[in-house]
Design a protein around this nucleic acid. Sequence first.
DNA 1: GAGGGTACCTAC
DNA 2: TAAGGTAGGTACCCTC
Length: 640
Amino acid sequence: MQREHKLRSYSLNSVCAHFLGEQKEEVHHSIITDLQNGNDETRRRLAIYCLKDAYLPQRLMDKLMCLINYMEMARVTGVPFNYLLSRGQQIKVISQLFRKAFEQDLVIPAVKVEGTDEQFEGATVIEPEKGFYNVPITTLDFSSLYPSIMIAHNLCYTTLLDNKEIENLNLKAEVDYITTPYNSARFVKPNLRKGLLPTILEDLLAARKKAKAELKKETDPFKKAVLDGRQLALKTSANSVYGFTGATAGKLPCIEISASVTAYGRQMIERTKQEVESRFCIANGYKHNAHVIYGDTDSVMIKFGVNNLIEAMELGREAAGYVTEKFLNPIKLEFEKVYFPYLLINKKRYAGLYWTNPNNWDKLDTKGIETVRRDNCLLVQNVVETCLRKILIDRDVSGAEEYAKKTISDLLQNKIDMSQLVITKALSKQDYSAKQPHSCLAERMHKRDPGSAPTLGDRVAYVIIKAAKNSPAYEKSEDPIYVLENNIPIDTNYYLENQLSKPLMRIFEPILGNKSNSLLSGDHTRVTKNTTPTVGGLMKFAVKTPTCLGCKTPLTGNDIPVCKHCKPKLGELFQKQLDVVNSLEIHFARLWTQCQRCQGSLHQDVLCSSRDCPIWYMRKKAQKDVADATGILERFNHAW
DNA sequence: GAGGGTACCTAC
DNA sequence: TAAGGTAGGTACCCTC
């Protein structure tokens, strides 16, 4: 799951909730013995727990068609099935190399390589002309850029030449071999020897083409997803071939190949920009001068100057065909989509409404910004997503502003559910050089309970709690469950200043300019209601309050927080609270039979355990309220 | 408080 | 032991 899918949590429970819409039974290990030694009912619950844990992984594999997909990958690459699970990309490339080399009676040398730290130069990212574009922006992409470069120029171990070979074989430049833009590396032309890598890549691309054709014909949404996964896997495999040649810590690195590939790529994106801008201009009879506003590796975003989709698409097709002609087969520049409107925030960060036909938009596409990142809390993700939808789809900027303001106001008044504030980050190292919120929390949790603490590779979930002024974030991170159980207040200001403000400003600034500052100041940022504890709000008045509940006079050495004078009056108050608690319990008892998110059935006294399930928090909160209230009442009655 | 360095995650 | 690549934004820690 971790390898193939990017999720916020990889617990069995949350993965199943994500893919199956079903959750596991929650049974803490400490009560297993009691359940077993109990009665038929408790043993039944234990049995359900065991059964579910067994069949959920099975159902997951069925749903994701793991067997079929892996089998297919094993066939394509020629590696044993279990290598696909236990090993990386390299073995797949090596295996294909061995296969092709064997056909041609070639032996691949076993090279001892000491990995170097040196990197070779990668792709070009065109400096973006940041801003909000209320005109169609046409996007052209090279399809499978790196594989097609390797095929077009016949880049391979078996075609790489050195001086001695050129001399011995009496090869002529340009006629017999080419010189690449990287360090004048030379490769023979395919008519003298066709490389192994280009052959492998052609096979992979053909397989991908087939999968894509089937994808187009398929109507069943799930089979479509599988085919899409397959063509993506073939694409990754094809791209891995380039990566393999550049893997200095690998089995057969060849920087001449990988660095030549990226060097060609850099030339090509530059050339594309120049060709488009010099052809599509007023001087050549077009209505406007085309301008490339951004591009990354294999793509260019073009402002043709037209203001309707049909023209933007026609020009896109024309430009793609025009540029493709300038390059060798099978290099192909394709028109795929138009963004309209388009918000270009920075390199690798943009959002736009995605059109493939002029009649209906396909989707809201966002790249790199908070909506697609897993290291933000859901609040940020949801606010940014909603604001973008309002701006780009509804064209309602003031509505987006209002929504952002409302959210800020809700946040500062503690009205946001804590599940929206949970941040997750992967714990990827054993020793961190600098302290960090998630690593420090993992350490603290380990001290509390080594059994349940996150370990290397896990994603750590945390919230930021109130602490002394200016204390660093790594002291303010806390386990959401612990916060809930101990009624610890959340640092809402942190969420405004360190989580929400910058992402919001980045979206609104290109549209509103200086006016966007008003988002973060004004009435909505005033805290009108005092920040109460974020959880367990119902019965918060008692126990720790050192003043009388009725007349507010300070109390000393009194277990019950009321004075004798007020006690009789409070009897009524407690009855009211009890009624609330009872109705709440009934309400939640009804709720508890079904997870409100996934509709999975739940044992009545079992909690849905997904930490980012809002209902989970509601139930946990209600349980705590009931427990608190019961405790208070017991003590109160006893003293009375 | 500025600026460098680290960590994380993403785009391609 | 085995490990696809580089570019790049952002947040936070640490040092000066």
